[in-house]
Design a protein around this nucleic acid. Structure first.
Lengths: 360, 360
DNA sequence: TCTGGAATTGTAACCGGTTACATTATTCCC
DNA sequence: GGGAATAATGTAACCGGTTACAATTCCAGA
């Protein structure tokens, strides 16, 4: 063990012992300044890459920083600079592959730019959504990406009044306060209807739509769906709607009801389910009742999650570019944060019909 | 509109104008103190629920806090109190349902306790893992839950030296520094081997194992697998291993190789794939080549993700209780944080064979 | 009315950075 | 060598809270 070199230094009238050998625990900027024999302002400048530090000084301080393993405290930095390099993301559920793909994309882009992502999920409960939002705002995130449960809510009211950049994900509003990134659900619904109306058998007599939580995206899908059906009046079918069918299990359990109420085993039927996860449940239920897909019933889903091509009968579905939604949301929030750019932009990503076995 | 009441106050020799009518923008604790005519220490005590504040004072301050919509700045609070109510989570990938289920469980539990969760994914790249870790430590998280890529790494070295609570997820080490939550992969591998050896056809002549990135969990699974196979010497099969098969596409693309190298269309074969996602790819590849499952080839996966029961031929697989892993990791980190409990505990969750059509 | 201790509140230091402004050092030119 | 301009660094206030300790207020009991 070599001896440590000890020096005497004055600071604010006190005499300090400074030892070249580093503290084992947390060092702060004062320790570095002490070791380097400069003021903490200079160290701070080096840390910030401020060009008005003499090159030799910079090198010396940098050396000490590297050797000591000093890591600046970001809380202090954030408090003082009013910038946290943190973005908060709130979604309804994070296990749904639709969302987890978006989240993953956002995370990758943010991390590349050295931003931090905190995630909360509302699980479709408004109080949780609101609590998550408040928590993030108190934590002074630089920006928020929120997939709101509803457009009329305390959450939206608070967001509207807030001064930080906000992106609404998977939602659309005319309100000038919010940038929005969503897919064109109206078009998606149309695509589904168009497919149903143009594909044989032309004589199919009933169309059953299955949707979930009352949510803007689902309303839009159904609007687009009806719009096409109305326009296509000549072939107008009997349309029946089941709502609040939210999970795989819900879909599975819906089937007996369908069978008794709609006698879909005896007539040609098209099922449009506005969520692939639920569609898989419905499919499973139908197969268990020996209903042939697409022989007896055509089945059309929505989302094109990774697994919809791999299920028992691969799903014909409407694709949303979830990865792209995540990418745009992340790029957009970064742009707003870094360039203090308050321009509101609305993104509507096109959807696409993916033909698979369940309704070829 | 009523008039605002204006009062004169002295503070530090200066005369302040205090108006009862709240600032539109951000208020801080001093503003509240000014409005209430007390010092900020008292406001801080009210905020902290400190009992030694006179009841009438508390009510009055609380009223002002409520009316003004004041939200304390958590950065400042954290800096001063050295507690952030934030937990960092690092996993390899967040789109894999195995991980997203864990993440979701952790998030729910943390949020219930008003903790914040920040997520980073390493995407199997060590440098990204390390960067994410450093970032989180600089952000002074109260605890870390990490699913490490490898046990010998800078990441682990830094974690070992760190003083905050750490949970290793999906990994195991004897090291006394770390609490671990993982499933019993050795047992899982055994279960798979046992299933293969006990199920007809007893005469099957080859076993093909397909694994991914070199990762402790996979090594353990294969160890358990071999352990059973060795012990079960009488029925010993020819075992072949393919490594570094990581994704659905990798699995799909592996099939032509399997077919030419192993002639699995002419002999009885068991395929053990240590990841359900990959197993689905392999399955798809086999089906495209008209190999019957389980007729020609038995297929056994690993993880029991939500979708493994829903694919073309539902997968026989080894279940890991991912939700439980998340739950335990979250509860454990909270316990360590809140009770300053540095007791290291190792959790090994049992696995379970799930029989489905791919190898009944 | 006085006194001591409990209850309440205020004061000021501190957490660890950033930065406007002041101060000192250096360089350049006549 | 002197003085101005410029470069480098230091000083101190500030970000918005928490908290140890000091000061004040209150009230019962003597």
């Amino acid at each position: 063990m070599g001896l440590c070199s000890v020096t005497l230094e004055r600071e604010g009238g006190c005499i300090y012992l400074s030892v070249t050998g580093y503290k084992p625990g947390k060092m702060n900027i004062n320790d570095i300044a002490g070791l380097a024999g400069v003021s903490k302002a200079t160290v701070s400048r080096v840390l910030a890459g401020n060009p008005k530090v003499k090159e030799t000084t910079r090198e010396q301080i940098q050396k000490i920083i590297n050797e000591s393993g000093y890591q600046p405290n970001y809380l202090a930095r954030s408090l003082s600079s009013r910038k946290t390099f943190a973005v908060g993301v709130i979604v309804e559920e994070m296990t749904n592959p639709f969302f987890s793909k978006i989240l993953s994309m956002i995370e990758n882009i943010l991390n590349d730019k050295n931003y931090t992502m905190s995630i909360s999920s509302s699980n479709w409960v408004r109080e949780k959504e609101l609590a998550a939002l408040k928590n993030m705002m108190r934590n002074s995130v630089d920006g928020l990406i929120v997939s709101p449960i509803a457009m009329e809510s305390d959450t939206i009211d608070i967001l509207r009044k807030s001064s930080i950049p906000v992106i609404l994900l998977n939602s659309y509003t005319d309100n000038e306060r919010f940038s929005c990134v969503s897919s064109d659900n109206f078009q998606g619904g149309r695509l589904a209807a168009e497919h149903i109306c143009t594909v044989p058998p032309a004589e199919s007599v009933q169309v059953i739509a299955v949707t979930g939580y009352k949510h803007q995206t689902l309303n839009e899908r159904m609007d687009g769906f009806y719009a096409y059906m109305d326009q296509d009046g000549s072939k107008r079918r009997r349309i029946e709607v089941y709502e609040e069918i939210n999970t795989y299990e819900d879909g599975l359990n819906l089937v007996p009801t369908l069978l008794t109420r709609n006698r879909i085993d005896t007539v040609k039927t098209c099922l449009f389910v506005t969520n692939d996860n639920v569609a898989m449940g419905v499919q499973e239920g139908l197969l268990r009742h020996d209903i042939a897909i697409p022989g007896d019933v055509r089945l059309i889903g929505y989302d094109n999650i990774e697994f919809s091509g791999r299920c028992r009968v691969p799903l014909t579905t409407i694709e949303q570019s979830s990865g792209e939604m995540g990418r745009i949301a992340a790029m957009e929030i970064l742009d707003m944060i870094e360039n203090h750019n308050m321009n509101v932009r609305k993104f509507r990503l096109p959807t696409r019909l993916i033909l698979r076995d369940s309704s070829p």
